[in-house]
């Protein structure tokens, strides 16, 4: 069996409140991503999906801090890596796409220059070479007229195009792992479908592993091979996508699946009342104590 690309082991993370107090956000999260695999994290706001990704990127700022656990990337613990080393890795081997491309791009610099910067920083190219590579990168994410678009500023582009620029930038150095944090939430449905297809195809082509974060189960299902369900700082269930949707086993997963109207279900079964997650989980605070459900019936409590 090959070694996992990313191996998160019992990650505890919290907000520091004053000198000694500490409010936990992640209570021992463990999962692995294999090279080339697309792994999805679903859950509601505040469940800890985004802080998990920030921890992997090494972008946690005070008062957020990891209290214990390990994040192994290719066997190397990212939490103990010197800052300089981490900077070399970030953007190069691990890249990230954010939810809102307008705030993530620099408004004062052309998109061509922003992409070119990746090649200058991580691959020691000259600016001239890098500009040409940037145009190729734009072409690879199917931006029409890439040579002209490279001279555009972010505000001159539509939301869908900006998100493509973000993808071009993230994939510029052929990273091993791409973290996508709700990359299509701000987009229109038709544009969302195009962007999702782009991420899926490019990552499959280049063998890039993806950590895909979303609250939208439909989006997760169309991209990921395996899914982890997060709730209140715990991974409550993890399984292969198909199996998770067919036979959800944790109460929270069942609630999540029944809470949203599914296309076509009304014509098949008539209008059914949507499941209210709160009514399934009578006491939310108790849920964190429930057992982690691993795939194929191997049940074990979360370490």
């Amino acid at each position: 069996m090959t070694a996992p690309l990313l191996d998160i082991r019992s990650l505890h993370l919290g907000v520091a409140l004053g000198r000694s107090a500490h409010h936990p956000l992640l209570k021992g999260v463990s999962f692995q991503i294999m090279p080339g695999e697309a792994y999805g994290l679903v859950g509601e706001s505040g469940s800890g999906k985004s802080v998990t990704s920030l921890a992997v990127m090494g972008l946690l700022k005070r008062p957020l801090a990891v209290s214990s656990g390990e994040i192994l990337f290719k066997g190397q613990n990212l939490l103990t890596l010197p800052k300089r080393e981490m900077r070399r890795l970030r953007g190069n081997r691990i890249a990230m796409i954010f939810q809102e491309p307008m705030t993530a791009l620099n408004p004062l610099s052309t998109v061509g220059r922003q992409i070119a910067e990746m090649f200058v920083l991580h691959q020691d190219k000259s600016w001239n070479e890098a500009q040409k590579l940037a145009i190729d990168a734009l072409a690879s994410v199917r931006v029409p007229n890439p040579d002209r678009r490279a001279k555009n500023y972010p505000h001159q582009m539509s939301g869908g195009l900006r998100q493509r620029v973000m993808i071009a930038m993230a994939l510029a150095c052929n990273p091993d792992l791409l973290i996508a944090d709700e990359p299509t939430t701000a987009l229109d449905v038709t544009v969302q479908a195009e962007v999702l297809r782009l991420i899926k195809e490019l990552c499959a082509e280049r063998g890039t592993a993806v950590l895909f974060i979303s609250h939208d189960l439909g989006v997760i299902a169309s991209i990921c091979q395996r899914v982890g369900v997060m709730y209140a700082g715990c991974l409550v269930e993890e399984n292969e996508t198909r199996a998770l949707f067919d036979t959800p086993r944790h109460d929270y997963t069942k609630g999540l699946l029944g809470a949203l109207p599914r296309l076509g279900s009304r014509s098949q079964h008539g209008r059914q009342r949507l499941v209210d997650i709160d009514s399934i989980i009578a006491d939310r605070s108790k849920l964190t104590e429930t057992r982690f459900i691993a795939p194929r019936g191997i049940e074990g409590s979360q370490p």
């Binding site: 449905v189 038709t190 479908a193 999702l196 189960l217 439909g218 076509g264």
Partner: peptide, 28 residues
């Protein structure tokens, strides 16, 4: 939803990321 006639309607419906559809058809 069952018999959309205009191509734009079909496009909109096809663009919804739906778990069932995503798992049953290979491509978006």
């Amino acid at each position: 939803f069952e018999a959309p006639a205009h191509p734009y309607t079909r496009r909109l419906i096809a663009a919804i990321p739906d778990p069932e559809k995503a798992l049953n058809t290979a491509e978006l």
